[in-house]
Amino acid sequence: MSQYKPGVRLRSAVCTTEVVVIAVPAGNIALSCGGAPLLGEGDTAAAGVVLDAAAAQGTLLGKRYTNETGKLELLCVKPGAGSLAAAGVALVVKSAKPLPSSD
């Protein structure tokens, strides 16, 4: 459990996924990827931690992942094999509203 600020970059302990925190609710929150806690700058993975097969749907580059309330938002800047979760609940891709290019 940690507190996060928008702009913070986190990486998976068990795959190549990297995310940037876009929005986050106040207070402590447990963010994970592939079943293992996401790591901040300077954090090291716990020994022997491996990708949990139950959290291995993968992340997609450029997708924003959000929780039920929509108050948490993570941007995937590097894709990987694990899937993202907050307090053990899988995050979902934020639906895009594509518009024609205006610029």
Partner: peptide, 14 residues
């Protein structure tokens, strides 16, 4: 968040 993040993703993708 930084504009460089957008370019980093573009490099990752294409």
């Amino acid at each position: 968040m930084n504009l460089m993040m957008l370019l980093e993703m573009a490099v990752q993708g294409f």
